[in-house]
Amino acid sequence: MRLVVAECAAHYTGRLSAHLPKATRLVVVKADGSVLLHSDGGSYKPLNWMSPPCSMAVSEPDDEARERGVTSSWAVQHAKSDDRLEIEFFEVFHDSQHSLGVDPGLIKDGVEAHLQAMLAEQISLLGEGHNLIRREYMTAIGPVDILARDAAGHTVAVEIKRRGEIDGVEQLTRYLDLLNRDPLLAPVKGVFAAQEIKPQARVLATDRGIECLILDYEAMKGFDDVESRLF
């Protein structure tokens, strides 16, 4: 990765035209060929950029550009389109290159798979007397996250989301409609479980007779089954 802090201007042409007047910015050139221009604001989003595949040519300024104070120019051309980013550098304050190596990628904590595994282990969060039938119970339209049985022997279908929204309630409704056609499972009640449930989703779930359960991920991670400990 190359990092350049410089006073620069940029002009983009292609599907539209855009111009960045002269200012101090961070220019990032990544190993995949992408080029990004950042200001000291705007969060993570660059002011302008070129995505790979693209090529970059560095050239000396002509007489007119040199009179304007330009010291060098970059022309970044996309390989599969007419998109082109031209950057004029007036003064370079920092220019360094760094090898970052292979990135292992983002490892998310608290994703739906984690919530599903922990709820299966702590099935009593659904209520006393609940027992796990199985995780990922397959149906003709996809797997139900958790299938359980309550203290009265009734089947319970649980749909798990990090953020509970209306589409999750609709998904569980479809599962319940299908599961309730099976005489070995019916009647099947639904539980919509999430770390956060939007008000509209809660209203829809309640209207359809679906129970809502808020999952406290931090508390679930610290679950301690006293009866299973040796000491």
Rank of each mutant, 00 (worst) to 15 (best):
M56A: 07
M56P: 02
P61L: 04
D62C: 09
D62K: 03
D62S: 04
E64N: 09
E67I: 03
R68H: 14
V70T: 03
T71Q: 09
T71S: 07
S73H: 05
A75L: 15
A75P: 00
A75F: 02
V76T: 10
Q77S: 14
Q77R: 14
H78G: 12
H78P: 08
K80R: 14
D82H: 07
L85R: 13
L85S: 14
E86H: 02
E86M: 08
I87A: 07
E91M: 10
H94S: 13
H94E: 10
D95H: 10
H98Y: 02
D103M: 02
D103H: 08
P104N: 06
G105P: 08
L106Y: 12
L106H: 12
L106P: 03
I107P: 00
D109V: 15
V111F: 05
E112D: 07
E112M: 08
E112S: 05
A113F: 13
H114V: 00
L115E: 04
Q116D: 09
Q116A: 06
M118S: 09
L119M: 11
L119R: 06
E121V: 00
S124A: 13
L125Y: 13
L126G: 11
G127Q: 03
G129H: 08
G129A: 10
G129M: 07
H130M: 04
N131M: 09
L132Y: 11
R134N: 12
E136T: 00
I141Q: 07
G142K: 11
V144Q: 12
V144D: 07
V144G: 11
V144E: 10
D145A: 10
I146R: 10
L147H: 01
L147W: 00
A148G: 12
A151E: 13
A151F: 11
A152H: 12
T155Y: 00
A157C: 02
A157H: 03
I160N: 04
I160F: 07
K161V: 14
K161E: 15
R163L: 07
D167Q: 11
D167N: 11
G168I: 09
G168N: 08
V169T: 06
V169H: 05
L172H: 13
L172S: 11
R174K: 06
R174G: 01
L176I: 03
D177V: 01
L179D: 06
L179T: 06
N180T: 08
R181I: 02
A186M: 06
A186R: 13
P187A: 03
P187N: 01
V188P: 04
V188H: 09
V188F: 05
